[in-house]
Computed example of a mutant assay.
Amino acid sequence: MKKKLIAMVVSAAAVIPAAAMADVDVYGRVHVSTDFLDDGADYSEVNISSNSSRLGFKGNHQINPDLKAFFQIEQEINFTNSNGDNFSTRDTFVGLSGNFGAVQLGRFDSPFKVARGPANLFGDQVGDMRNLTRAGQARFDERYDNTFQYTTPNFSGFNAKLAYSVHEDSVAASDHKTDSVSLSLNYAGGPFEASLAYEQVSEEATRGERDGIRLAAAYKLTSAAKLVGFYQTLDYTGLAGTSDAVQEQNTSDVYGLGAELKVAANTAIKAMWMARAVDADDRDSDMLAVGVEHKLDKAVRVYANYALVNNDDNIALTPWGQARTATPPGTNGETASALSVGLRYDF
């Protein structure tokens, strides 16, 4: 009798997790690269970098024909070293969707951040546009905590996103003014894709008040050729008492053009030029990135990129500062360059 009972318990334990996981997917990305980084002055070294590698779980549950629950839990994983935290929370949320659209709560990319997507040819690689768009205290490419977001249904290729975030962890107990509003209008249809976004952050403890507008677009000239364009303008007010000089150093326009061309079924070459124009004198930068990418199959791709940032005398941006573990600083007034060979495996 005891043997039969033990066998039943073991069988049930084996079945229950399978049933519970029926609508749950495990996914991830391993993205590493070997890079030669040169700041144009004293630093010139080979690095190995983990580039937004991640592990996630996502799933959904059909409550009734008109309502579905969904969730996602995603963690960034450092594949190259043990410096700092090996895990950090990426887009993690729970929500409901139906004919009304979708609502979700948690920590995830703002609509403003996601809106760069149509023009993002070098995401998580050297030459990533965030090296210019996310510079300074006025940056908006953020994943906010404590966020509520509503996404409309799709209307003939159009949809909109509206997110509201309460930054509870970034202010003193006596000050709860801090919050942000981020919204975007998005379109995808035929050869054209575009996003227009706005974000505003009220005064908060670390960086202060700021707002921005972003436009990104892509157009497929043919099945093999695509053009992209990008524009962003940011206005920085800062904390109470922030000087005019600091406001000018963080108020900027960023714009750029790029192209991608398939030269074979699984191989593409791409290039993008971007510029950052700052209100303050001698703080402008421009970036050029070129690369070739080959997909070994649907899951694995390899690439080689070269990127450089040319800086004015009072700024030290690099083409490698974002979404990577290898991030040595740049040098004011110098041209920072990077040669990168990478492997990305999605599962």
Rank of each mutant, 00 (worst) to 15 (best):
D253Y: 14
D253T: 15
V254C: 00
V254P: 01
V254Q: 01
V254F: 00
Y255W: 14
Y255G: 02
Y255R: 12
G256F: 13
L257R: 10
G258P: 13
A259Q: 04
E260W: 12
E260L: 11
E260H: 08
L261Q: 13
L261S: 05
L261N: 08
L261Y: 15
K262N: 08
V263Q: 12
V263E: 09
A264L: 06
A264H: 04
A264S: 06
A265E: 13
A265M: 07
A265K: 09
A265V: 11
N266E: 15
N266Y: 12
N266T: 15
T267R: 12
T267Y: 04
T267P: 10
A268G: 02
I269S: 03
I269G: 03
K270H: 14
K270S: 14
A271H: 12
A271D: 05
M272L: 13
M272D: 10
M272F: 13
W273Y: 15
M274K: 00
R276K: 15
R276D: 04
R276P: 05
R276H: 10
R276G: 06
R276L: 11
R276W: 10
A277C: 04
A277Q: 12
A277M: 08
A277S: 13
V278W: 01
D279R: 10
D279N: 12
D279I: 02
D279P: 06
A280F: 08
A280Q: 10
D281I: 00
D281F: 00
D282K: 08
D282P: 03
D282F: 06
R283K: 15
D284I: 05
S285P: 03
S285F: 07
D286L: 10
M287G: 05
M287W: 10
M287K: 07
M287F: 09
M287Y: 09
L288W: 02
L288T: 01
A289I: 02
V290N: 05
V290C: 05
V290R: 02
G291I: 08
G291R: 05
G291E: 09
V292T: 09
E293F: 01
E293P: 00
H294E: 10
H294T: 15
H294N: 15
H294D: 13
K295C: 03
L296H: 01
D297A: 07
D297E: 06
D297G: 07
K298M: 06
K298E: 12
K298I: 03
K298P: 02
